[in-house]
Design a protein around this nucleic acid. Structure first.
Length: 888
RNA sequence: GCGCGGUUAGCUCAGCGGUAGAGCAAUUCGUUUACACCGAAUGGGUCGGGGGUUCGAUCCCCUCACCGCGCACCA
């Protein structure tokens, strides 16, 4: 027997840390590659190393933890692979801010010292999110924690880069990139967000070269880029400009002559039909420029300031893009070239990290031929080798994959995987996994020992994240982990990183492992605030999961996330919801307390199929039903249904009814009751089942209660998921349903008729069939207790002034002549009769319809018939009751 | 412009061919041997509008409206 009685309320703070430590010490969460159990693998989306736990993580990690714990309890060798990614830009920014506060910067420090500082920072602050995950109760295989900059993972990155390069799938190219003029690096198009704002459209007249003083007017939202115009394009079929094609215009301010060309890109419907072409500063213009072999004039430096080009007047040199715009407009006005200014709404590209406007910028960068890698990644989803849940996200995936652009993977940063490419004296490139190899290749290439220099750039963080499903398992070594845990079973993530990460893991996994990285991709919702707004620091509506854990406990937060994780809808989280599930935890706590106080402990060898009491037969059947619902729900990723199933059973069935039914057995003087021992054992067993089923969702409280309620060899985290024999029992279930309906009906009538809650009244039952009589006799104690009755008797007549109601074939009579309000009772009966009449009418419409009788499935037909009979019977009885009332 | 999702009780949301559900909120009662972070009960819905399929539609189809989100475009 446990020695300690439970406290009256549940204090999560007092137990969470203790159990987490115990789990950690138990080693139960380690994968076992050498063992024989079938694997279950989840690759944790590695949080950003600079990150801290937010609501999205709380949801994402809770669901993964549930799946991992559940599958482990089901006997799988579960591996939940944790780790963080090095977050190139974000981390570099954090450390640069730090340096800034020290009055220095990375350039003063130099690359090597700077990287040391980053590693120092990582050692000190990089583990924040992992300790926060522990507070949430998330338990991946911590011993296998990885970091994308680990030596092993870095080696995988180098190998992948070299191989893809040799296969021609990585190449260097000079193209327009999204350039961040604040962070001074290229970023991918996924890191650019379009923000709509008010702007202007300036119409500028360019003078056409020639004797007549003609002009051609172009329109632009970015007049400063005209300094880099190298053509004006018109549509080949545009009649307005036919005679101008092939002529030149004199570009104002610079005085350069640029050609008027014909290109279908120009849309006669838009603007003036003539469009300035700035190939070095616009993605569309770039394509036009390539088609017509136009010069690419890059007017900006890396800070988006006007570059000191000869073709640009000196007064412009060094102006930033917005100053340059003002200056250009001023001069155009002076030159009388500015013909119109319109107010327009347009969207501008912003860097999601830096928050500044991104500049299309002409640079040399490394690219992955994503289109080639995407092909098999598309096919495997088409054929169902990898399945998205919910399925409609496959559309999003396909949409992007089928239109995929070359992936720019180089970044002008210091923090990250430095590109394994070295250049010889003439810039010839040597790509190799190590400097020695590159040197060897270079020496061979030049026929003499030469000096080589490494490409200073690093790779996009997502390049290494894309390898996560196999690099974390030891690839390129052929490790036992790799062969056992790849491919993963399920990836759990939000839709916002389908492109960033899911798609890229698919591409890399298929290319290097020849198999998909995971069989299922479960896409969950976004957590929003109670009003449906996206949480953001600037809006000030963020809810901190750690605050909620402090206030309500990790289990309450986890249950909330689970209960709200319905497929295909965002989560609007309100604190009230968390509070409600904290109450659930307390309820469970107190139910356990009740069990403990009444000696309901698990009994070794207890067999739920052997119970004899009706209530026990009923509850074990209900238990099995709830367990099956929960299991089916988890297996199909319907987490909210799993939560509902166990919540309703625990609170609505076990606490509200079963515990109340059995209380009389535990009263004084009942010690020798023949059903007492069985009922105690059943209750102990039930509580164990509830704790076990609930454990993946609420690990802390269930572990605590499990330990408090019995002597156990192992913790609950080691317990097996229950498997039941067939416990269904129609007879017991029908009987208990009747009992519940009876008690509910009497309670309802009592409240309707304002019978004082404390008043014990008599119940007479008329027209009771044999079965009802038996049931009344068998459950006499429970009925009297729960419906607050003094006695229950069979009767043939109705006393004057009695309340009447109907249950099945029986009429329930409550003789309360002294309290009854006749008008009120009349109203109640009239209302009930009206309701029954409505039902009868509705059902008879069906039954009188020959088509219905012919087409409806037999069970529906039967159901309607029996409902009809019941309603008619009840109506008759209540009508009689009404008459008797009038007579009285 | 293309695509996806949503519209069900005051609020947040389940359900999805066969009697409209939950939690919270509201109202009324309640010191009945686990729990007031509780218990009992009550009220509250022509399931966004309109058409269609069906014996039967909240659920399937079409259409409209409004609200989100993603992508594209923006001279």
């Amino acid at each position: 027997m446990p020695d300690k009685t439970l406290d009256k309320t549940f204090d999560p703070k007092a137990i969470e840390d203790k159990h987490y430590r115990a789990w950690e010490a138990s080693g139960a969460f380690a994968g076992d590659p050498a063992g024989g159990k079938p694997p279950f693998t989840i690759m944790m989306p590695p949080p950003n190393v600079t990150g801290s736990l937010h609501m999205g993580h709380a949801l994402n990690m809770t669901l993964q933890d549930i799946l991992t714990r559940y599958n482990r309890m089901k006997g799988r060798d579960a591996l939940w692979q944790p780790g963080t990614d090095h977050a190139g830009i974000a981390t570099q920014m954090v450390v640069e801010r730090l340096l800034d506060s020290e009055g220095t910067n990375r350039h003063k420090l130099g690359r090597e010292k700077f990287l040391e500082r980053v590693w120092d920072w990582k050692a000190e602050s990089g583990g924040t999110i992992n300790s926060q995950l522990r507070r949430l109760g998330a338990f991946p295989d911590w011993a296998r924690e990885r970091f994308t900059m680990d030596e092993g993972l870095s080696r995988a990155v180098r190998k992948v880069f070299v191989q893809l390069y040799k296969e021609g799938l990585i190449y260097k190219d000079k193209r327009l990139v999204n350039w961040d003029p604040k962070l001074l690096t290229a970023i991918s198009d996924l890191e650019v967000e379009q923000r709509e704002q008010k702007g202007h459209m300036w119409h500028i007249a360019y003078p056409v070269e020639g004797p007549e003083a003609r002009t051609i007017t172009v329109a632009t939202t970015r007049p400063e880029t005209m300094l880099g115009d190298t053509a004006v394009a018109v549509h080949p079929d545009d009649e307005r400009y036919q005679d101008l094609i092939g002529k030149s215009v004199c570009l104002p301010i610079t005085g350069r002559l640029i050609p008027i060309i014909a290109d279908e890109y120009s849309d006669p419907e838009k603007g003036t039909g003539a469009v300035k072409i700035t190939p070095a500063h616009d993605f569309n213009d770039f394509e036009v420029g390539k088609r017509h072999d136009l010069p690419m004039v890059n007017v900006f430096d890396i800070h988006a300031r006007i570059a000191p080009l000869e073709s640009i007047p000196k007064s412009y040199h060094g102006l930033d893009r917005y100053e340059a715009r003002k200056a250009v407009l001023r001069e155009l006005e002076e030159l009388d070239c500015l013909v119109k200014i319109e107010d327009v709404k347009n969207s501008l590209p912003y860097g999601d990290r830096s928050g500044v406007v991104i500049e299309p910028f002409l640079t040399d960068q490394w690219y992955v031929d994503a289109a080639t890698l995407a092909k098999p990644a598309i096919e495997t989803v088409e054929t169902g080798e990898t399945v998205f849940v919910p399925k409609n996200w496959e559309n999003t995936y396909f949409e992007w994959m089928r239109n995929i652009q070359p992936w720019c993977i180089s970044r002008q940063l210091w923090w990250g995987h430095q590109i394994p490419a070295w250049y010889g004296p003439d810039k010839h490139v040597f790509v190799a996994e190590t400097e020695q190899e590159a040197q060897k290749e270079a020496d061979a290439h030049y026929g003499e020992a030469v000096e080589i220099t490494r490409d200073p750039d690093v790779l996009d963080t997502w390049f290494s994240s894309a390898l996560w499903p196999f690099s974390t398992l030891g690839w390129p070594e052929a490790t036992p982990e790799l062969s056992k845990y790849y491919p993963g079973d399920v990836l759990v993530t939000g839709f916002d990183i389908i492109f960033f990460w899911v798609a890229r893991m698919m591409m890399m996994g298929l290319h290097f492992m020849k198999d998909v990285p995971f069989r299922t991709v479960y896409i969950h919702a976004l957590v929003r605030d109670a009003k449906g707004q996206k949480m953001s620091k600037s809006k000030g509506n963020v809810m901190d999961p750690l605050d909620l854990i402090d206030q309500y406990g990790a289990d309450a937060l986890r249950f909330t996330m689970t209960a709200m994780a319905a497929q295909g809808r965002d989560i609007k989280l309100s604190e009230q919801r968390v509070e409600g599930y904290r109450n659930f935890a307390t309820k469970l706590w107190n139910a356990s307390r009740f069990c403990q106080m009444n000696g309901c402990a698990p009994v070794a060898g207890f067999d739920p199929a052997q119970v004899t009491a009706t209530a026990n037969k009923w509850i074990v059947a209900e238990m099995a039903l709830a367990a099956r619902k929960m299991e089916e729900a988890i297996e199909s990723y319907k987490f909210n249904e799993a939560a509902t199933a166990i919540y309703q059973f625990s609170w609505g069935t076990f606490c509200d009814w079963y515990v109340e039914f059995i209380k009389p057995l535990f009263a004084e003087g009942q010690e020798g009751h023949p059903l007492a021992a069985e009922t105690r054992a059943t209750t102990g067993w039930l509580l164990d089942q509830i704790l076990t089923l609930l454990h993946p969702v609420m690990p802390f409280i269930t572990e605590e209660l499990y330990g408090a309620l019995g002597e156990r060899e192992n913790g609950l985290s080691d317990a097996a998921w229950p498997l039941y024999p067939d416990l269904a029992n129609e007879k017991a279930q029908a009987e208990m349903s009747w009992l519940i309906a009876l008690i509910s009906e009497i309670r309802s009538v009592r409240t309707d008729m304002n019978i004082p809650a404390g008043a014990k009244i008599d119940l007479f039952v008329k027209d009771a069939g044999q079965e009802t009589q038996n049931r009344l006799r068998d459950h006499d104690e429970a009925i009297r207790r729960m419906a607050r009755l003094s006695k229950i008797e069979l009767a043939d007549t109705v006393p004057k002034g009695a309340l009447q109601t109907v249950l099945g074939e029986a009429t329930l009579i409550l003789p309360v002549a002294d309290i009854i309000d006749l008008d009120q009772e009349r109203a109640r009966l009239t209302k009930q009769i009206a309701k029954l009449e409505q039902d009868i009418e509705k059902i008879s419409r069906n039954l009188n319809n020959a088509e219905f009788v012919r087409n409806a499935p037999p069970e529906i037909l039967e159901e309607n018939k029996s409902r009809m009979e019941d309603a008619a019977l009840a109506k008759g009885k209540l009508t009689l009751a009404l008459k008797q009332l009038e007579a009285a």
